[in-house]
Design a protein around this nucleic acid. Structure first.
Length: 557
RNA sequence: GCGCCUGUAGCUCAGUUGGACAGAGCAACGGACUUCUAAUCCGUAGGUCGCAGGUUCGAAUCCUGCCAGGCGUACCA
């Protein structure tokens, strides 16, 4: 509809140019927005004002000329007007809105989807929590945002691949192994203590106990190095399995799990370093091997191989991102916690150093979650073992509420997550407000079915029946949904979905509530059919939107 | 010090790429259940959009400088 209107305006400009009523210029970009005030029409454009300078004429004059040149063979518009300093307001003909209502149940689960992604392949890597401890609340936000963004991108026609990068190599894994080995020895009566750098959480003890059951005292007879390696591998595998279970409970699935260790085992990291050497992108200094990231936009050069011969985390990340590009994605999106933001320039630099198009790579930085309990901050640290797990949150608050709450904020804003509040609020939580719409409509449809109304097909009479301002308002809101999804995808802002859902829900609840004025199922069969069609369409959008968020749509509550 | 993010109603937050008188939920106050489910609805009240300049027809939005908070600034991951 917006596109149709933009097309009409473009044609009007063209014909004004040809008629000489406006000076021939390039046709500018046409911005159409939905005015806040109903009296300002369904769409509004500031085109006349932006053209005022180049045309050297008053905006209102230009607006008038454009309107005079608009040809509208399909009768899309019912009214146009020049307003304020030079806005052109457009009023869409009523039956055009009804045409959109008609399409909602026809398109059903596809309503809201589009093809703007053109089938391009996008890879989205998110969460990627180290397998050194269970997922905690902060991870929940990344998981919810990443998963919903994936769904949104898929809805607008991208081919989306979700990936989890498993940091199963390096020092933190070794530390994990050491921690477990200490606990294991303690269980066997040895007097060894955890060092400050070790993982303190009680889950380490649990892992040691399971290990003891499996291996008995076998590890004591091994060289320590070997025992720690065994502990590390055992623990990481076990923890990763737990993470997968938590993600199942949270409703998040990944198409690919990419192991950091595999980059070493296949020799990829070493090959990449050789490659860098031959291209003179790295140099030696103080015994270490440095990447010339500064030449590619980073503030300074970065170490790839330390003086002690060990590679840095950056080394495998270079190899990893090179691998991503070699997998020929059109777009590569990384979602990281904001505490990693200093890392962005060096990864981007490494990508450009290989000659890849840096614009195809984007990083979304999710601001951190501040966990509160009764308004007081709870400090979280995986290492110190002080954290609230995602699993606990799912169990206490529920998956639907948790996902909704995580999405209800722009990802660039820090999020205060108060556990007690989340539980207390569970009754006036926005997620129930939206789900309640689905339940209410489901109930109406059930009742209607008892009275003989089955699947209702569109009838052209409906556009003459559904004419109450509230009904038109609802239809206009429904018509906006595909735009909301497209916009959410383009800006990579999943929070737009729940905000829209709340708005649509509010409009429905208000409509539903005034049952004296417009009860859906009444004695008037035609009217009932039309309104049943309307509410069915609303239910479809609620269901589709909740699906994008990974939130269930209950039949009853 | 430098870099990234944030600052909008008492609280939690939106704000359609610079538009018309700044919006919602919660909290406060006053109302609505003989129902297609009140997990709902209607109304009242509440703002110097952190501060100060600048850009222009027009700024919460863009630029500059301050102020405040968070995060980062390793041959850690």
């Amino acid at each position: 509809m917006k596109q149709e209107l933009a097309f009409l305006i473009r044609q009007a400009l063209q014909s004004a140019f040809e008629a000489g009523t406006l000076q021939q210029k390039d046709i500018p970009r046409i911005d159409l927005e939905i005015p806040k005030i109903v009296a300002h029409g369904d769409f509004s454009t500031n085109i006349a004002m932006t053209m005022a300078v180049s045309q050297k004429r008053a905006p209102r004059e230009i607006a008038k000329i454009i309107i005079d040149h608009i040809e509208d063979p399909d009768h899309l518009l019912s009214k146009t007007q020049v307003a304020g300093p030079g806005f052109i307001n457009f009023f869409i003909a009523l039956d055009k809105w009804h045409e959109i209502l008609k399409t909602v149940p026809e398109e059903d689960t596809a309503y809201g989807t589009s093809q703007v992604g053109l089938g391009k392949r996008v890879q989205i890597e998110f969460l990627s929590a180290n397998p050194t401890g269970p997922l905690h609340v902060g991870h929940g936000r990344c998981a919810a945002v990443g998963d919903t963004l994936s769904a949104v991108l898929k809805a607008v026609g991208y081919e989306v691949e979700k990936e989890y990068y498993v940091n199963d190599s390096g020092r933190q894994i070794r530390t994990l192994g050491e921690s477990v080995f200490v606990r294991y020895q303690q269980l066997l009566g040895k007097t060894v203590d955890l060092s400050a750098g070790n993982y303190q959480g009680s889950y380490i003890k649990d892992l040691a106990r399971i290990l003891l059951d499996q291996e008995r005292e076998r590890l004591l007879g091994m060289p320590e190095e070997e025992a720690v390696t065994l502990c590390a591998r055992f623990a990481a595998t076990r923890i990763l399995a737990g993470i997968r279970e938590d993600l199942v409970a949270f409703g998040v699935s990944f198409g690919h799990w990419f192991s950091e260790q595999s980059l070493y085992e296949s020799g990829t990291v070493q090959a990449v370093i050789q490659d860098l050497k031959s291209q003179d992108i790295v140099y030696e200094h103080d015994g270490a091997l440095w990447f010339r990231t500064k030449d590619f936009g980073d503030e300074k050069d970065r170490v790839v191989v330390r003086a002690n011969g060990l590679t840095t985390y950056f080394a495998s990340d270079i190899a990893y991102h090179k691998d991503k590009f070699e997998r020929k994605f059109d777009r590569i999106i990384d979602i990281w916690g904001a505490d990693h933001h200093g890392y962005v320039p060096r990864v981007s630099a490494s990508i450009r150093a290989f000659g890849y198009d840096g614009d195809r790579f984007q990083v979304l930085l999710i601001q951190l979650v501040n966990l509160l309990r009764d308004g007081k901050p709870v400090t979280m640290s995986t290492r110190a073992g002080e954290f609230v797990t995602l699993r606990e949150v799912i169990d206490e608050v529920g998956r639907d509420a948790a996902r909704f709450l995580f999405l209800l904020r722009h990802y660039e804003s820090p999020l205060d997550f108060d556990l007690e509040l989340a539980k207390k609020q569970s009754n006036d939580n926005p997620v129930y407000y939206v789900q309640y719409v689905h339940a209410r409509i489901s109930n109406i449809l059930k009742k209607a079915e008892e009275r003989g109304y089955r699947e209702i097909d569109w009838h052209d009479d409906f556009s003459r029946i559904l004419t109450l301002p509230e009904e038109i308002q609802l239809i206009k809101l429904m018509a906006r949904y595909p735009d909301v999804v497209a916009r959410s995808a383009r800006l990579m802002e999943p929070h737009r979905i729940p905000f829209y859902m709340k708005e649509l829900s509010a409009a429905f609840h208000a409509y539903y509530h005034d049952r004296n004025k417009h009860k859906v199922v009444s004695d008037d069969a035609k009217l009932s059919a039309a309104r049943l069609y309307l509410v069915s369409a609303i239910r479809i959008i609620i269901r589709n939107g909740l699906a994008l968020m990974g939130v269930s749509a209950p039949e009853s509550m």
